[in-house]
């Protein structure tokens, strides 16, 4: 114990000797550890407060931007949906128009009225012949039926 105090005195004595005389010594004291800790905590809380605010603001900004994008996409989707519905409608109308143009009654009506097509009064058909049957055989097989039909009255039930 004696050794420590004497060492302290020697040290302060050496410092006092090295400083100029007549100048006031600064007030020095032992720092209160609890005070420092409180200040640090306040700084941290402030930082956390600003950080949270910043994050919240950023999140809100992102959310607002996201919503705006969603709304814009929804509008775009609605537009595309409307265009699609329109295209489907147009396609159906065109299909209907095509079917109407192709209908046999319209084709025949045009042919007869616009292009003056005249149906022949009678049509002579060539008798079809099976590949395995000769033309002579086909002629022979067809002749008796025609011959018989001429002699039989058709006015019977």
């Amino acid at each position: 114990m004696a050794t420590r105090s004497s060492a302290l005195e020697r040290a302060t004595g050496r410092r006092a000797e090295s400083e100029p005389r007549g100048k006031a010594r600064p007030q020095l004291g032992v720092v209160d550890h609890r005070h420092a800790l409180q200040r640090a905590r306040r700084r941290q809380a402030r930082a956390l407060y600003f950080l949270s605010g910043g994050v919240l603001a950023a999140a809100l900004t992102v959310a607002a931007a996201g919503h705006a994008m969603l709304a814009a996409t929804q509008l775009r989707s609605d537009t595309l949906q409307s265009q699609l519905a329109g295209a489907v409608g147009t396609e159906q109308n065109l299909e209907l128009r095509k079917a109407t143009l192709e209908s046999p009654s319209r084709v025949m009506s045009l042919a007869e009225h616009r292009y003056k097509m005249v149906a022949p009064s009678g049509v002579t058909y060539l008798q079809p012949v099976d590949p395995g049957e000769s033309v002579l055989q086909a002629h022979e097989s067809a002749r008796p039926a025609a011959h018989r039909s001429a002699s039989v009255p058709s006015h019977r039930p």
Partner: peptide, 12 residues
């Protein structure tokens, strides 16, 4: 061919 329906004949 020779009955009541001769008008239904189709050549060939």
């Amino acid at each position: 061919a020779e009955g009541t329906g001769v008008l239904a004949q189709i050549p060939g």
